[in-house]
Simulated assay, not measured.
Amino acid sequence: MDLPKKVKIVEVGPRDGLQNEKENVPAEVKIELVNRLSAAGFVNVEAAAFVSPKWVPQMATSREVMDGIARKPGVIYSALTPNMQGFEAALAAKADEVVIFGSASEAFSQRNINCSIAESIARFEPVAKAAKDNGVRLRGSISTAFGCPYQGDVPLDAVADVVARMRDLGCDEIDIADTIGVATPRHTQAVMETAIRAFRIDALSGHFHDTYGQALANIYASLELGISIFHSSVAGLGGCPYAKGATGNIATEDVLYMMNGLGIETGVDLDAVAEAGHYISQFLGRKSSSRAGNALLAKRNG
């Protein structure tokens, strides 16, 4: 089939990217980053997480960030909400979308949250209902859909089961995530085809990590199936906690460069994103992980 003519890129750097940073990133830096990304043309920015600051100290400033950003009309500002307390905080902070999350791996679910997949999804029922009652968009994220650091392979029927559970909760969009970055293109297509049978293709997204350098190839493999929503992180922010020293999220600049080359519309200004990547990388005191971003800046500063 033909590749999609247009895709939505969900920018996850301010939340998924920064949450693993050891050094505290002040609220004003996060606000500036979100504002730069909104200005670059993203229609969906994952900006906050209303989680326990004990477990994720980097996200303790989420309310401050949500209160301080210059909201651009038409942009969805998302927040991660693991429970009702998180949902109430997200609602008070005027999040446009709340994100709930489950795992396709039983071992991962048990090791991380000490309960089964079925139990973990059931815990989100009140959050899902509250989102619907309050007219807030609901996104479901499925981790370890392509492989697990504890059990290895994840069966396709396990992925289908969690997609169906997320669908039945009323999710408007569902992310299929390669948390440890082990997928390759054919495997990606097998998992995505399974998800497509359980949920609307236009509301399924691919969230690929670049641990083994396969993320762009996996995005292309997903495009071939007609998937048209992808997650990425400016400057490649965010490591992979399960693979020491490994890269995490695919860099947004690299995804945009590929989409531009394919003639696929994103609505996002690559140069502005490269600048945003440079801004946050300078603050963190290290080089951006984006090859395209670094090449563009080097060319311009030639």
Rank of each mutant, 00 (worst) to 15 (best):
Q282K: 15
P149A: 02
G41F: 12
S78M: 06
A93V: 00
A217C: 08
P126F: 00
H278C: 05
V268A: 07
V163Y: 13
L270F: 13
G226D: 11
L138H: 07
T184R: 03
I76N: 09
T184V: 09
A203R: 15
E97R: 15
M192V: 09
V12K: 03
K72A: 12
Q110W: 10
Y220I: 12
N35H: 08
V12Q: 04
A130R: 14
S116E: 07
S105V: 02
H187P: 09
L204R: 08
A274F: 13
P126Q: 00
K72S: 06
R137W: 00
P241S: 13
N260A: 13
V191W: 07
S38G: 12
D2M: 12
G140N: 01
K54C: 03
N24M: 14
R197E: 14
G74E: 05
G267Q: 00
F42V: 07
G245A: 06
I117M: 05
Y150F: 15
R15A: 03
H207P: 03
G285C: 13
L223H: 03
G206K: 11
F283M: 11
A40F: 13
D157G: 00
V34R: 10
L33V: 06
V154D: 01
F283R: 08
F208E: 03
E106H: 12
M66C: 02
G213Y: 09
Q282M: 15
R15K: 05
A93M: 00
V154L: 09
G147M: 10
F124P: 01
L256V: 02
V268N: 04
G13H: 06
E23F: 13
G238R: 04
R286A: 04
D16C: 10
V45F: 06
F146N: 03
Q58E: 05
D133M: 10
V98Q: 08
G152F: 05
K54G: 01
E21Q: 14
S290W: 09
S205R: 13
H231M: 08
D161Y: 14
E46V: 03
I264E: 05
A190P: 04
A60W: 05
G102R: 11
R197Y: 02
I9T: 03
R137T: 02
K287M: 10
V51Q: 05
G226K: 12
V29R: 12
F87A: 08
F230C: 07
F146C: 02
E119S: 08
E21H: 10
Y77N: 00
A160C: 01
P73N: 11
I201Q: 14
A107M: 03
I280R: 07
N112F: 06
V10Y: 12
A164F: 00
T188Y: 05
Q282N: 15
G68I: 04
L296P: 01
